[in-house]
Design a binder for these strands. Structure first.
Lengths: 343, 343
DNA sequence: GTCTTTTTTGTTATCGGTAACAGTCGCTCG
DNA sequence: CGAGCGACTGTTACCGATAACAAAAAAGAC
């Protein structure tokens, strides 16, 4: 009970020293003899002394908080990115505070405002498309900012990610190479997931170059299994019937794959399926998804390292674009005969 | 540039009032005329004034931080629980700070120590089994504590969750009712996921009552799809061959289901499969998993509401145990003939 | 029109630490 | 043997707000 009220002053009095000595001793800062440091450390532990981060951070005008904003945690992708960051950050003595913006730039902007009030050690945003106010605010603040998951032409500060349009393009070329000529993109309504739109655009560009038109199918739902299932069911009814479906991501692709299985459409015999991310669900599927493999954990780890460096005043590279190789699975195939566009 | 240094004093000077008036005006607290409040608000916005939470929280001896510890975010289950909490908490003006303990009580305990330094508004822990030190520390602090996901006989403070042993028991009875007599539990090594162990124990108890012995199969891997796949492959080689597999959770169960499909074992014709959680992946599977449906989002929401009440000094119920109904899917069936134990 | 009340505004002390500077003390060095 | 130096330890002045109380101004009461 007396524990909860022990403050640095009490420890100082008990040890017969000034509070500065206690402060120095407990922080592991130079300027105290080992003898007194030991005495103080023991005493502090005995008294159950808990230093106040609030006071400490206030005095030092900066905290050890790293604020991270992700669209959602339901998606394993962001969980993995955050997971990749955490280890490095925790190791560096940084605390992480997480926000889910639900793909809403306004929410993200509001969060930025709130976070700045905490004098964070750094801010991490997902993507590079922010509400106008947020970017301005971030550029002028002295806080290190990391933009993750996407690549910006002129990042606010630090930037680690992948070129989504390029990933889409490469997948497009890959599918073209497999002779697909009637592709359909299946995603959620325009503007919700901007990175997905970039991939779609890349895919479209690749196909367009070969004179092939990409059709669009939007399902108004959360970007998960069910949306993919729904999208696939609708796509199968399209006339002319598509020969390949490019899903927003692996979750949707999996839902689509299951839908095909349910209604008895052979994959890749009758139709091809491609996703995005290379989730680990792929490791157990009887038929691996064709997908682009994103380096999620590595991305997080790299970003965290850069941040720690930046926080410590060391400036490293500012912008890292990571490759997103296409992984050819068993849900697409070049062996099809009926692949000429029937349009 | 001057923006980043504007402090309450500057706003006060600019508005020609004392800093207390500014403080009151901006916090929406009583004690300022609407006229001056309006003037101050505008001025503060113009000057880009950002109040310091560090200073504010220090002065008020409490912050608006709610610290949440979950084993992992990779598991959609915890993402959903946290998601359920967030909305309510954010709405109440509370910030959430998340830790992943990776199922390690020592890490959780260390985190508790670190978090207390922030004078959080509340602490949320997953499960009810903590390192001895942590519990003590938490009981004596004046901070509201919520234990989530599991039910404790004597919670530290607040407690919302499900009875895992009961969930296991009910599944056991359900499987018994379907005439299964040679069950195998597939999980990760003992002691890693304590809730899973309780479910297993419940299942075992139910079967034991009918004179049936439960066999154990442990896969030393992360509790995900792959572990289930691996476990199922091993289980299929057991002699006598099991007639039903109870997986640690739906992730593993799905991996197991896929493994069976891959090697051509008919489910539920040759073997039954049951999981735990009722994940949404179930909504797209051609063959729905038999599972126990956990109220994850509701659990989070309920917990958040109780916490907000507690933080505001209102005491509500302290302990809520939620039901976990068995959902009979298409991966188990009573129609089997070869279900007599061959042991 | 004077005396209360009530509302609005300001003052002072404090929250729990840390930075920067100022002593102290014991030794080494010339 | 006193100056000079390095290793400790202490003092003072904040960090940027809020609580509690005090004072001044406005609104009512009679």
């Amino acid at each position: 009970m007396s524990e909860s009220i022990a403050k640095i002053e009490d420890v100082a009095r008990a040890a017969g020293v000034s509070i500065m000595s206690v402060s120095r001793a407990l922080r592991g800062v130079e300027g105290v003899s080992e003898a007194t440091r030991a005495r103080i450390t023991v005493l502090a532990a005995e008294m159950g002394y808990v230093p106040s981060r609030l006071a400490g951070s206030l005095a030092q005008a900066t905290s050890n908080l790293v604020a991270i904003s992700v669209p959602t945690l339901f998606d394993a992708v962001f969980a993995e990115i955050v997971g990749g960051m955490r280890e490095t950050l925790t190791h560096a003595g940084l605390e992480t505070i997480i926000e889910t913006s639900d793909y809403d730039p306004a929410r993200e902007a509001a969060w930025v405002e709130r976070m700045i009030e905490w004098s964070p050690a750094a801010l991490v945003l997902s993507g590079v498309d922010h509400a106008p106010g947020a970017s301005t605010r971030l550029r002028e603040g002295g806080v290190p900012v990391m933009q993750l998951w996407d690549i910006a032409p002129d990042p606010i500060d630090l930037n680690v990610g992948i070129e989504h349009s390029l990933a889409g393009e490469e997948m497009g070329r890959h599918l073209l190479g497999l002779s697909y000529r009637s592709p359909v993109y299946i995603g959620i309504p325009r503007g919700r997931d901007l990175r997905a739109e970039k991939r779609r655009a890349g895919l479209e560009a690749a196909f367009q170059e070969a004179g092939v038109t990409l059709r669009d199918l939007r399902v108004d739902a959360a970007p998960s299994f069910e949306a993919g299932r729904e999208g696939a069911l609708q796509a199968l009814k399209l006339v002319p019937r598509p020969d390949v479906l490019y899903f927003l991501n692996d979750h949707l692709a999996f839902g689509g794959l299951m839908a095909c299985e349910t209604v008895g459409v052979d994959v890749p015999g009758e139709i091809g399926i491609a996703g995005f991310n290379g989730l680990n669900i792929n490791n157990v599927l009887p038929r691996r998804l064709t997908t682009s493999v994103t380096p999620r954990s590595l991305m997080g780890k790299t970003a965290a390292r850069m941040l720690v460096a930046a926080i410590r005043g060391v400036r490293t590279e500012r912008r890292i674009s990571m490759p997103v190789p296409v992984e050819s699975g068993a849900t697409t195939s070049a062996a099809l005969t009926a692949k000429a566009p029937r349009a």
